[in-house]
Design a protein around this nucleic acid. Structure first.
Lengths: 255, 255
DNA sequence: CGTTCTCTTGAAAGACGTCAAGGGTGGTGG
DNA sequence: CCACCACCCTTGACGTCTTTCAAGAGAACG
């Protein structure tokens, strides 16, 4: 049963917060929000700031209020891969784990709302809805990661770049209709780290998509999708499927 | 508070079941086990059998009692990628989702213990420990998937094959000491689908690891690790890290 | 207006995919 | 028990996609 409460019971800090609607705070009662907000700190992180260090104990969890966070993994010899991207109002941090396996880094300026580990765990115990919300986010991230495994394992360079641009476009315009300009939140080097390519290859494939009339760029980081269906096809997600004789391997892109 | 119960309260079906200890059933009370077991069916699946079809409604969940299950994703043109491997006593199926994005397929003979969706959801509501167990498995799978993203995006063919053999060896012998023979649960074609390579390339790299004295094979599917540290190094997880001038890209393997 | 960083483009090399054929192994039937 | 067949694995030769190395253009900033 839900108590009859007023908005005035919601902490002032949370009133204009996006996380309270679409984020994890959306499932909390005002009284729980009040408790959470007592231990809450808002802060901003500059581009490149390390939000979570691999191997270090996780003391605080955060909601992402604005900006994009890169989750990266690194090999001993320095090779790097972005294994996830998080946007507002995603929850940042791994529940139940003492340490994180990944490094979280701000890609651009990021605004966060952080709270201590203990507070979250306490709330999670008494609010099953919160627990479920976090579980659902984990499953969503799992689906995403597996989708990118398919991209990394089986798609060609141009398909990977098209897939990434599709991700950007869909996030801004889920309907995939408009012709407005979307801001690409990552530089070429970060896109390369995400797609398992080099900076040069990303740049070449962007150029090639532009020359094919599928996209156009106002600046190097501002994307306009000229032909949504062509972009889906270029990403390997096209509806038409002429099964190849061999089911494996990257297909060779013509022209 | 836990009731004072005896083993005799545990359903006969569950008595010798591995899932009751290390699997999700381990957190259930005997009374809940009884309830679950009333709706439970044990069955076996032949190699290649489809356990979960992408896009179809999920009616049943399962515990894997024995065998290996491949989770695969496929592009419209037929290119395929294994996005996860599951072993006993893993839980199979995606909670909260109406349909599955991935296809689950038996790799070899598999024994399963299945129960209806409703029963699991009912138990999950009243047993927070079960909910948490499933949440933890999802997070574990997420960590795995991200680790393979790093492998698929940044490792060379020989490093990928070494990484896979390391997975097999560690699963059988977490200490990584013994010199016993491990059964490789996948054929070369499946390994290729897992590593984003072709069958031929996998075969070549296995040969190369064998010629380097790092592993030896009794049959093509029986692995002996001759030099554990060398295998870790070959997988790119070596401790020594001479940072390359460029941080990205697959390093060229010498020799 | 120079400096620096990011992005782009070019040419060459190499790793992996493709196509093709051969070898091993297990199962089945004569 | 051996022959045969199917399937899986291995090996070879070649093509090409992506990386590497290198340099130049463009944009942001002081």
């Amino acid at each position: 049963m839900r108590l009859d409460v007023h908005n005035s019971d919601v902490p002032r800090l949370c009133l204009s917060c996006e996380a309270r609607h679409r984020g994890v705070c959306g499932v909390l009662e005002p009284s729980q929000l009040v408790r959470l907000s007592r231990h809450t700190v808002r802060h901003e992180a500059a581009p490149g700031a390390e939000l979570l260090a691999p191997g270090e104990p996780v003391r605080r969890y955060s909601n992402i209020l604005a900006g994009v966070v890169k989750l990266t993994m690194t090999l001993p010899d320095g090779r790097q891969q972005i294994v996830g991207l998080q946007f507002a109002p995603d929850f940042l941090g791994r529940p139940f784990a003492q340490t994180s396996e990944v490094r979280a880094e701000a890609a651009g300026f990021v605004r966060l709302c952080s709270f201590p580990r203990e507070t979250l765990e306490e709330l999670m115990r008494e609010a099953p809805a919160l627990h479920q919300r976090l579980h659902e986010q984990a499953l969503r991230e799992l689906d995403d990661a597996r989708g990118w495994m398919l991209t990394l394992g089986r798609k060609s360079a141009s398909e990977r770049v098209a897939s990434f641009l599709l991700l950007v476009a869909r996030r801004a315009d889920p309907e995939e209709q408009g012709e407005s300009a979307f801001d690409i939140p990552l530089g070429r080097a970060d896109i390369a780290d995400f797609l398992g390519l080099t900076e040069e290859t990303v740049s070449r494939q962007v150029t090639s998509l532009r020359k094919a009339g599928i996209i156009s760029l106002e600046t190097s980081r501002s994307l306009v999708v000229a032909d949504h269906e062509a972009l889906r096809n270029a990403a390997g997600e096209g509806s038409q499927g002429a099964p190849s004789s061999r089911r494996s391997g990257r297909t060779q892109s013509r022209s």
